[in-house]
């Protein structure tokens, strides 16, 4: 069995002359929480719509649970749950009735799953209140309930925190984390709120103007965003020894190009420069680097640097 839940191969979607997605290759492993980051209109929803079968690719292919034939894709979609754009609800039905519709649709035996799901998403006490009278947050939670009703292996959430209050956001994040840890649920979640995704996702795909600019793990992202002093000297090996002996630190990395990334002395760059020059080294470059998540993203997509 494939270790990948979802793989896309040169996935392309074109509307007339505009590419909504262009040659997108994304791989999501079992058990991952994959955060799809992008600005509004970057192509996040288009990609999710293609994966869920709401829309058809112009080119490229999608592999879900190791299957890539269109008829097989429809079948394996039964193992997925999703909210795309807005939660799709029957406004004149209660939360219970909305879930009952979905239960019948999926052929889930017994009604106990409805009570369990209502409890899980915190809507057990909504009684006869119609979905049209729900707050935006309650609608999101009911949408999540619908997506979770059939106990899916793969959950796709498109901007799920839209309309949620701060507590609601925390609750949803904790719920997703819990389902991921306890049931091994694989999650693909899109958002333009970077800090939100950073607290939840284990892998990231950065999408911009229909193209995936970068795929990286949480560790890699943190590494890239970590503040450091970037030093380039004429002899990097000696430079490293000086840092160890004179500045008594081993919290640095020597990069393949000889640049040293020093994670200490962030507020005392002068000491670093002094130690290096005192040992006869020529400093070619010395700067303080590191990004906030927003700044890193902004740089990557070619926007304004955010300090």
């Amino acid at each position: 069995m494939s270790e990948f839940i979802l793989r896309t191969n040169n996935l392309t979607k074109k509307y007339k002359n505009d590419f909504a997605l262009e040659n997108v290759n994304v791989s999501i492993k079992k058990g991952e929480i994959y955060g799809l980051i992008g600005q509004n209109g970057a192509g996040k929803s288009t990609m999710l719509r293609l994966v869920t079968g709401l829309s058809f690719p112009t080119d490229g292919s999608i592999e879900l649970f190791g299957n890539d034939h269109p008829s097989e894709l429809t079948e394996v979609q039964k193992r997925m749950g999703a909210i795309i754009e807005n939660p799709a609800l029957f406004p004149n039905m209660t939360a219970y009735e909305n879930l009952e519709v979905h239960r019948l649709q999926k052929g889930i035996p017994g009604r106990s799953c409805i009570q369990n799901t209502l409890e899980l998403v915190g809507l057990l006490d909504t009684g006869k209140k119609k979905a049209k009278n729900f707050s935006l947050g309650m609608k999101q939670r009911l949408g999540l309930g619908i997506a979770l009703l059939s106990d899916p292996e793969f959950l796709i959430l498109d901007e799920p925190t839209n309309g949620l209050d701060p507590m609601g956001i925390v609750e949803m994040r904790e719920l997703i984390k819990r389902l991921n840890h306890e049931k091994g649920l694989t999650v693909l979640i899109s958002s333009h709120i970077l800090s939100e995704l950073h607290q939840l996702a284990t892998s990231f795909g950065i999408i911009h103007k229909g193209k995936i600019l970068e795929e990286l793990t949480l560790k890699e992202l943190d590494e890239k965003c970590k503040m450091h002093v970037r030093v380039k000297v004429d002899q990097s090996a000696i430079g490293a020894t000086v840092l160890e002996d004179t500045l008594s630190t081993t919290d640095f990395e020597v990069m393949p190009d000889g640049t040293i990334k020093l994670y200490k002395y962030l507020n005392d760059v002068r000491s670093v420069s002094q130690a290096l020059t005192n040992n006869g080294l020529v400093i070619e470059h010395l700067s303080q680097n590191g990004d906030s998540l927003e700044s890193y993203f902004s740089k990557l997509v070619g926007g304004v640097d955010i300090d």
């Binding site: 039964k78 997925m80 609800l89 519709v101 979905h102 619908i146």
Partner: peptide, 13 residues
């Protein structure tokens, strides 16, 4: 736009 048809398609029918 807020149509529930999405759920039916996503459900693998």
């Amino acid at each position: 736009s807020s149509g529930v048809i999405k759920n039916q398609v996503i459900s693998g029918n």
